[in-house]
Design a protein around this nucleic acid. Structure first.
Length: 928
DNA sequence: GACATCACG
DNA sequence: GACGTACGTGATGTCC
């Protein structure tokens, strides 16, 4: 059909599609060969969405995707700096450019480009032709350079916002009609394309001038008449530059086309051709969707594992023999080797696992695969003595001599030290006066790319990535009562084990480090993982002062109360039994007393959790007493008793250990002891915090993010009402309740607010009717009603949840706003686990983003407080605790709050403010 | 060592 | 239509 009246031409700005696709999607690679295809995937998705949108009465009769070709055009001949400040095309985008052309052809859409001409000129020429032939033209782009073409049947469509840009839209943007757009652009210039324009004149001023004088030429001719002296001079001085600018922005409507507009008629895609292209790209989801639309069979795409060939060639670990370094000369040789290589894997052997207490026994080094040594330093010779003698074993160099030799290398900026869990080794070295830097950590490198897939201990990594099972430590130390410490291991046994650990660490680094970049998590590793190591090490060394007497008195009080309760429970049960045994308790409750609601779990035992016992408490006196007993038992055994055993004899303080890789979402975990779950919710439990105190003359200061996860939800899901509430500092739960239940804020009741609060939290966890019903103890149907209403009022939340799950299904991971990736390997699994994976995927970006925010704050903290006398002691997910001299409290709060509230800058700009609340007191109960 | 329970955000 | 459900952790005691 010849183009003419009644015809409608669509022109798609190909480059705009590509760049949008490239930046919207993570750097995906084709699984079989690692070819980057993220932009192609996004491009195809956008094309398909475009095609699907064309079913209305306004469907196009003609369509083409127009691309740029080559970087040199006639504009460069006019002005050699044209687009000179453009950044080079990203390396992983370049190979995708030809594929986007192939994709267009596969969709059977005309694909046009011409050497020496920008896509914009081709678009301009076609748009003018279409108009002159009496037809219509829609340009699918939001590029302002194309706005000069609008009018007389030519419109633009911003595909992203699905917004039509007509003459009015152009006037809104430029303050003049489309026919004067180039005049405004000539004056205002364009920093993106490096069009100079007139210095100091922007779009606003330019439009004002053009509207006053009619055209640019008129304005320049009558520039003398301009009243403002500076503006007048600018126009007179820069006339040539302005005229050049106009020629640069003026599109060429007379491009000598090598094809005809009639060639662009809309064509049906050939299913075979399109699907085989998609299969070649290995786009599973998209080819399924398109096959469905076309009524064709989806191609089978084999799940090809990437070849393991990119792993560096390494000698077999089983064949390795390692050197034992026994004197300064041998050690110096190894130090020289590290300087030759520029890096070295380092591992320490110690007498135990608590790095605050244990002693250094030996050090191993590895400079390249298979080339490692062990330096024994404090082995004891206990071979002849059943109890072990304390005499040093033969053949070791003095510890201090070794450290003196190693220290310059370990602290040398030019030598990269590689460790597996470097926080541990760095803390050991710190105790001997050595500050290890710079370093890489294979555990963190693994975590940055594989969180959610597997754990990151050396044994697991070695088996997975090197196919080698390391020598088990138990084979040296034994187990149970007869277990010995590493200093009792004979040196000739210790060497193969210790040196192998360093060898494995170095090999893991060689395999995993390059993949950081391929997986797109280098920035995560370098800004959110590695810098945290010294910060946490310092916090752990600081520890927190815990008052033993307070805990001890509480333990005694708890023991007395428990004894009383136990007697009452036995009386009520009519027999003695172990209250701490759920099995025995279940039998008493449901078999002997025949109380209702006895449900057996998968092990066949009655469930006696807090929910069940609370329900039963209305039936009988016994369950309530058991609950009281359990609470006391928990507080005593886990807290008041156990915490005392963790008080360090030297410091009088408790030193927890934080794990950077403990939680898949990016949160830290705390252990030995866990100081992130000290009671606070119950009044009795809360009193345990009174035992956490500050040194004489100091106070504890606690600063915590207010509602950070809900704020992040409001931002990522784009919920304007929630965002506004946070900006206005409103009570977010009350506001939600008001929206949902149509209750004015000033008539809000605590019960309605409580329900809204439960829903708000439920949303963060991937809400379900069942879960909410159980939490609120209301019928399931009612809970579902609440959820439905919530989604009705905040439709963006549902969209966010659906999109997040879809993203996880497409990519196998979800992401935080800071780029942290959390893998979701089970997301496509069927069966009972499906809901679980979905909820985890919905929660992870929110919890993870909050975790990233506080990590950023913590990493900045040492520099921020270096001139203050305070110490950072603890982190509890959204809270930081400091020990501060009384007279420095206000300043500390100011500084720390500033860091915390602005921690997302400049990486992420939140639509909602982050707010930090502060408290202080002689102990943690008062500070919180 | 698995399981149930319960402490925290 | 049924399934099994709030997200993320660590420590303790019982029982096999």
């Amino acid at each position: 059909m010849a183009f003419g009246k009644g015809c409608h031409l669509h022109l798609i700005d190909g480059s705009a599609f590509i760049f949008r696709a490239y930046h919207a999607l993570p750097p995906l690679t084709r699984k079989s060969d690692g070819l980057p295809i993220g932009a192609v995937a996004g491009f195809c998705n956008m094309l398909q969405r475009y095609v699907e949108g064309n079913n209305g009465s306004d469907a196009p009769t003609h369509v083409a995707v127009i691309f740029d070709k080559g970087s040199h055009t006639f504009r460069n001949d006019m002005y050699d700096l044209y687009k000179a400040n453009r950044e080079a095309m990203p390396e992983d985008l370049r190979p995708q450019m030809p594929l986007t052309r192939e994709a267009t052809i596969a969709f059977n859409i005309a694909c046009e480009e011409m050497e020496g001409f920008e896509a914009d000129d081709i678009i301009a020429t076609l748009a003018v032709q279409a108009r002159d032939l009496g037809g219509r033209c829609t340009i699918i782009s939001s590029d302002k350079d194309l706005m000069q073409l609008v009018g007389g049947g030519v419109e633009m469509l911003d595909a992203m916002k699905n917004k039509v840009i007509d003459v009015e839209g152009v006037e809104e943007k430029f303050g003049v009609g489309p026919n004067r757009v180039v005049d405004v652009q000539a004056l205002a210039g364009d920093s993106v394309d490096n069009v100079p324009g007139a210095p100091g004149i922007g779009v606003k001023t330019a439009a004002l001038l053009i509207n006053e004088y009619g055209t640019l030429e008129e304005l320049l001719d009558r520039a003398e008449e301009i009243k403002q002296p500076k503006r007048r001079q600018t126009l007179i001085d820069h006339r040539a530059q302005i005229e050049l600018s106009k020629r640069l922005v003026q599109l060429d409507e007379n491009t000598p086309l090598t094809f005809s507009i009639d060639d662009l008629e809309v064509r049906e895609p050939d299913p075979d051709r399109l699907l085989s292209f998609l299969a070649e790209m290995e786009f599973r989801t998209l080819s399924k969707r398109i096959a469905e639309k076309l009524g064709a069979e989806a191609p089978v795409i084999e799940d090809v594992a990437p070849p393991a060939a990119d792993a560096p060639e390494m000698p077999d670990l089983k064949d390795a023999t390692y050197e034992t370094v026994r004197d300064a000369a041998a050690l110096q040789k190894w130090i020289d080797l590290t300087y030759e290589h520029g890096h070295v894997a380092v591992d320490t052997e110690t007498t135990g696992l608590n790095e605050m207490i244990v002693d250094l026994v030996g050090i191993s080094l590895c400079v390249n695969a298979g080339h490692a040594c062990y330096i024994p330093l404090a082995h004891k010779d206990g071979s002849d003595d059943l109890f072990g003698s304390d005499a040093p074993a033969e053949g070791q160099m003095p510890l201090q001599e070794a450290l003196d030799l190693l220290k310059p290398m370990l602290e040398d900026e030019s030598i990269l030290k590689i460790g597996q869990n470097m926080k541990y080794d760095a803390k050991i070295f710190h105790r001997y006066g050595v500050e290890v830097a710079p370093f890489d950590d294979t555990m963190l490198i693994s975590y940055a790319q594989h969180a959610g897939l597997h754990n990151h201990g050396m044994d697991a990594l070695s088996e997975r990535y090197l196919g080698h099972t390391p020598i088990p430590i138990k084979s040296l130390l034994g187990t149970g009562k007869s277990q010995i410490t590493f200093d009792r291991v004979p040196i000739d046994e210790a060497t193969p084990y210790a040196a192998e650990d360093a060898d494995i660490t170095l090999r893991l680094w060689q395999v995993l480090k390059p993949q950081l970049h391929e997986k797109g998590v280098t920035t995560v590793y370098e800004t959110l993982e590695r810098p945290l190591v010294p910060v946490l090490a310092q916090m752990e060394r600081n520890g927190v002062k815990v008052d033993r007497d307070t805990l001890s008195r509480m333990s005694n009080a708890f023991a007395q109360k428990m004894a009383g309760l136990e007697a009452e429970i036995h009386e009520l049960a009519g027999q003695d039994f172990n209250v701490g045994s759920p099995k025995q308790l279940g039998e008493i409750l449901f078999d002997k007393l025949e109380l209702p609601g006895g449900k057996k779990g998968k092990t066949g035992a009655y469930s006696t959790g807090v929910d069940i016992l609370e329900d039963l408490a209305t039936e009988h006196e016994l369950p309530g007493k058991v609950l009281d007993w359990r609470q006391l038992s928990k507080l005593k055994s886990t807290y008041t008793d156990a915490l005392q055993t963790h008080i360090n004899a030297d410091t009088g303080r408790v030193h927890t250990s934080y794990s950077i890789v403990g939680a898949n979402t990016g949160r830290l975990s705390s252990s030995e002891p866990n100081l992130q779950n000290i009671p606070v919710r119950s009044e009795e439990g809360r009193r345990i915090r009174e035992a956490f105190v500050a040194e004489q003359g100091n106070v504890l200061v606690s600063l915590d993010y207010s509602q950070i996860e809900l704020r992040i939800l409001a931002h990522v899901a784009g919920i304007d009402a929630l965002k506004q509430a946070f900006k206005d500092g409103q009570d977010i739960h009350a506001m939600t309740a008001s929206e949902m239940f149509d209750v004015p804020l000033d008539e809000m009741t605590p019960d309605v607010r409580r329900k809204a609060k439960a829903i708000n939290f439920g949303v963060i966890y991937g809400i379900s009717g069942f879960g909410l019903a159980r939490n609120l103890r209301i019928p399931r149907a009612e809970a579902q009603g609440f959820i439905d209403r919530y989604f009705e009022r905040f439709p963006g939340i549902r969209t966010y949840m659906d999109e997040t799950v879809q993203f996880a299904k497409d990519h196998g991971y979800v992401q935080t706003l800071f780029g942290r990736k959390i893998n979701t390997p089970e997301i496509n699994a069927k069966g009972p686990g499906a809901g679980f994976s979905k909820r985890a995927a919905i929660n992870a970006p929110i919890q993870g983003t909050a975790a990233d925010v506080i990590r950023r704050a913590m990493i900045q903290m040492p520099a921020a407080i270096k001139d203050l006398p305070c110490k950072m002691l603890l982190q509890v997910h959204d809270e930081l605790i400091f020990e501060v001299p009384e007279d420095a409290v206000d300043e500390t709060i100011n500084v720390v709050r500033g860091i915390m509230e602005n921690a997302s800058d400049p990486a992420v700009k939140f639509d909602v403010p982050l707010v930090v609340d502060a408290g202080q007191g002689a102990n943690w109960a008062e500070a919180h």
